[in-house]
Design a protein around this nucleic acid. Structure first.
Ligand SMILES: [Zn+2]
Length: 504
DNA sequence: CGCATTTGACCGGCGC
DNA sequence: GCGCCGGTCAAATGCG
């Protein structure tokens, strides 16, 4: 419910338009700017989707070649007006007729507006998916396509299929209610039905076996509990226990945050809390509740040394579509996990070899460490630019390899996301005002300029959750962006629910 | 009433 | 085998 509200807010906020000016153009005028790549996507999608009853596809095609605003609008109106069946009657009552006609026009406009909104939302999601996939692809490239492990062919094929599939998926009930259960169920089914894998699953690259696929194929995807679920509720027996010699990789994010939990766009339910051994602060266990069987878990723990540092460890990959805000974080962490898995599993000595991927660089504003000490392969992205103490003060586990990373100043300087959740007031306006560089683009740039992929990830994450610290007020723990927004006056020039990705 | 959190119980892995 | 430990479960509780 409230999710829905947020989504609506997102759509109405016009924030998306800021990010994609071309879209706004099209939204308002039904015109197409061929110069913008995003618009091309829009055209593609709309053609696929709106041919059912809307004549717009034709118009859009026309528009792609030459912008014909008026013809577009007129066509649609004429059609709808005639369909109203009032035209012929012409009961001589001119004003009344005019009124009805206008009303019909209004209705049609409204209807079209609604459709456009849903389309826009769909496009947004599709775009995110594509982003994620591109990220994955790039990540694999960065890995030098090491190892047959992943079956790259499959991936290469799956990408177009999946994107097309997702785009075509009929979503009658408009996308406004992305988070509506019914819709998500549909999506889940859709995904599960497809032989290909969901984007996040792609990151679960497994060397020897394709255990990851079962996550993707088995829509229940309760594979998480498999390693240790003797009870298994419905006895959905089959191959539920694939041995899982390797646990899932973990991506740990260290960030400075006063809030009890960083805002990553997902919905989490706490299912446990334990006192860590060497840490006065308890460790909280959360699981993703955005989908029924989502295997993603995370642990939140405060650093013993510096209580202002919050360590969030993600494990698993989402088996369901994610809202944009969550996509940002999920794709980033899953990419990191993929990198870690592919790197460490191919060569068991892998850790040193990873060093080749992370050449030491002078400005180490971010740091990633790969740890083999933990029972699970873990990659730690350190976003704490610890101003005072050296980052090495932390007790590094014996088998941890600290890898000073390139800070990618340009990345950090140009955050690609408006920090989620924070009211616009706290966001420097220029961030939103700037051209909205996608994470993928940024990562691409990072890879291009520097093979250090982790730095890009860290930078991405930092931009995702960045600046979310501070407001410690009770509402923050609910992880609800609106909760934070309510109390604060929205910045005038920025839409309330802006936050590129905060809408979840 | 439905949902999320709390919190002690419980479980498997591991070292002794 | 025993106990520790990380992790999870689930009943109780709180909250809207
Ligand atoms: Zn999830």
């Amino acid at each position: 419910m409230d999710k829905q509200g947020r989504e609506l807010a997102f759509l109405h906020s016009g924030d998306f338009l800021h990010q994609n000016p071309g879209l706004s153009d099209r939204l308002t005028h039904n015109s197409v700017d061929p110069s913008n790549s995003m618009i091309k996507e829009v055209d593609f999608f709309s053609r696929d989707r709106t041919d059912d009853k809307f004549p717009r596809d034709q118009e859009i095609k026309d528009g792609s070649s030459s912008v014909l605003v008026h013809s577009v609008v007129n066509t649609g109106l004429n059609l709808l007006t005639s369909s109203s069946g009032l035209s012929e009657t012409a009961s001589g009552n001119k004003p009344n007729y005019e009124l009805k006609k206008l009303q019909a026009e209004l209705d049609s406009l409204y209807d079209e507006n609604k459709k456009l909104r849903s389309l826009l939302d769909q496009i947004t999601r599709s775009y995110k998916d594509l982003q994620l996939q591109l990220l994955m692809a790039m990540q694999k490239q960065a890995q030098g396509s090491r190892g047959e492990q992943k079956g790259e062919l499959n991936n290469g094929i799956s990408i177009p299929i999946m994107s097309a599939k997702q785009l075509v998926v009929p979503r009658p009930s408009a996308a406004l209610d992305v988070n509506d259960n019914s819709v998500s169920e549909d999506k889940a089914q859709d995904i599960s039905a497809s032989p290909t894998i969901i984007p996040e699953a792609m990151s679960q690259i497994n060397p020897g076996k394709q255990a990851s696929t079962e996550d993707g194929l088995d829509q229940t995807s309760q594979s998480w509990g498999s390693p240790k679920s003797p009870r298994l509720e419905e006895g959905k027996g089959e191959q539920k226990v694939p041995e899982v010699p390797f646990r899932k990789a973990r991506v740990s994010v260290r960030a400075r945050s006063e809030a009890p939990m960083i805002t990553d766009g997902c919905q989490w339910r706490k299912y446990g809390q334990k006192m860590a051994k060497g840490n006065p602060c308890p460790r909280a266990y959360y699981r993703c509740t955005m989908a029924a069987g989502c295997p993603v878990r995370k642990q939140v723990q405060r650093c013993a040394d510096d209580k202002t540092i919050l360590i969030t460890t993600y494990e698993g990959n989402h088996n369901h579509p994610l809202p944009p805000a969550a996509t940002a974080m999920a794709s980033t962490t899953s990419a990191a996990a993929a990198m870690l898995l592919s790197g460490s599993t191919t060569s068991k000595e892998g850790l040193p070899s990873n060093n080749s991927f992370f050449p030491s660089l002078p400005y180490a504003s971010t740091m990633a460490t790969l740890s083999a000490s933990a029972p699970f392969p873990t990659i730690t992205l350190d976003l704490t630019q610890s101003p005072n103490s050296t980052p090495f003060l932390r007790p590094p586990p014996p088998t941890t390899f600290p890898l000073p990373l390139h800070g990618c100043p340009q990345l950090l300087g140009h955050p690609m996301y408006a920090p989620p959740k924070l009211p616009a007031a706290a966001i420097p306006s220029l961030q939103l005002g700037q051209r909205h560089a996608s994470m993928v683009e940024t990562v691409t740039a990072a890879i291009a300029s520097d093979p250090n992929f982790t730095a890009a990830l860290a930078a991405a994450i930092s931009s995702i959750i960045g600046t979310q610290r501070s407001n410690i007020d009770g509402s923050s723990n609910t992880n609800a962006p609106n909760g934070g927004l309510t109390g604060l006056p929205g910045s005038p020039q920025l839409p309330q629910s802006c936050t590129t990705f905060s809408t979840n």
